[in-house]
Design a binder for these strands. Structure first.
Lengths: 243, 243
DNA sequence: TGTGTTATATCTTATATAAGTTATATGTTA
DNA sequence: TAACATATAACTTATATAAGATATAACACA
């Protein structure tokens, strides 16, 4: 009888992955930080450098860590330049890279509706913040976002904080609340513009819009954001790849 | 001065990846086949097993190869059971897994319009096959597909061949023409249903539909299929994930 | 300004053991 | 003998360790 016969057997590198993830959850290393070198981690976890490397390789493949030859391994951050487009899949049809400008419409405290509550593992009626904003390309409004986050995890969030923050919303969540988004699932439908979004997006009511529902997760696959984006896709597309 | 200073330097494992890909392009190993064992490949390419392993690891991560412990490493195929949903991102909202039925509408030989020709690296007016079909879930039509493939690479394709084939279209392309789709890019918009698709999908004209434009690639990143799908997303969504 | 030092990740090879699969040999039983 | 079960062997990939050479980056120092 050896340890591998155990039904709960996990390879060493997988256990190392979990230990690293736990340090990320605990905030021992925060987004942007360098984590210890492979050799240091190997000593700490009492395994070989190769095993640490395999664990880091997989976390890097999941975009949770970033390796830089000669420099070290870093915790992925939305504050990095090339991270700005990581979760933004709407792009111009002509291929020109353009980052949208954001206009904050409102930040309110609400009771979570059943739909977003269940996806965020909250009780219906739990306290959430509801953020509404409008994203524009070339000055033309294209995306109307409604964003729900649990109030418990985003204590003190308000209008002014977001308005004064220069970077992306996920970068803001990271720096002010220590919550890093690492993964998201999206469900997309085509819907008719209602009166509110028609006015905001400068389209007639009934105009087809892309409705993009997202749940975003932080370390340990914990859901911490629900959002619904309504997108006017004239000269823009939602771009994705599969393999 | 060592070889690594060369601007065209590629690590060994990357060169092995290219050699394996070339064998796939040449048809030495076809979808579903087992490729030689790591040890055999190491001997053939005069490198260590570890280097072959790294090359195979990356190709497996790209879903080009599939590893099976104890059995061997296989060329990914659309004829495998779990491949059926690999490129189908439309799913029921209630989470029930259901594979749509396909009704073939037409197969015609056409001159490539500028739009699909340029994406397929063809001259405008080059000969293509145009396939039209309707996909239904629970008997309800949901997706109207128009598919363009270069006639040169799909010689002899016709209506009856597709109609008699039991599996998916990509499985059909593989078995009859030796062309395996390994990657695809999609651009999605919300559009109004025109008269043709309105009738086919049983929706009123003007109904919002998802328009999904796809370019699919085979080994060596060669584009070999363009398609446009018009999707009625009532009780269905386009599902995707990002990290 | 340049040059060497140091620390990092990267690449490559080598070796050993574990675990999953399959075919074959060897029993055992009807 | 024939059918079936079991053990064994030979293959595969998976996991883990070790060691050395190389590429990249940062820094100290002349």
């Amino acid at each position: 009888m050896n340890i591998h016969s155990s039904p709960s057997f996990r390879p060493l590198y997988d256990q190392i992955k979990i230990l690293i993830t736990q340090s990320l959850i605990a905030g021992e290393w925060r987004p942007g930080d360098a984590i210890p070198s492979e050799i240091d981690l190997a000593a700490r976890f009492k395994v070989s450098q190769g095993t640490v490397r395999k664990a880091i390789d997989e976390l890097a493949a999941e975009n949770i860590l970033i390796r830089r030859q000669g420099k070290g391994t870093f915790v992925a951050s939305h504050s990095q330049e090339r991270a700005s487009t990581r979760f933004l899949r709407i792009a111009r049809d002509d291929g020109v890279a353009e980052y949208p400008t954001s206009k904050l419409l409102s930040v309110t405290r609400e009771r979570a509706p059943e739909a977003s509550a269940s996806l965020l593992d909250l009780r219906t009626g739990a306290s959430i913040f509801c953020i509404k904003r409008l994203l524009s390309f070339e000055g033309a409004p294209r995306i109307f976002d409604e964003i729900h986050v649990p109030a418990a995890a985003f204590k003190g969030l308000d209008d002014a904080m977001i308005r004064n923050y220069p970077g992306s919303l996920y970068s803001f969540f990271e720096s002010h609340f220590g919550i890093a988004m690492i993964r998201a699932e999206e469900h997309i439908k085509a819907v008719k513009a209602g009166p509110i979004e028609a006015e905001l997006l400068h389209v007639p009511q009934g105009q087809p819009l892309l409705r993009v529902d997202r749940v975003a997760f932080t370390y340990g696959d914990r859901p911490v954001e629900w959002r619904r984006g309504l997108c006017h896709t004239e000269r823009f597309s939602y771009v994705t790849e599969m393999s």
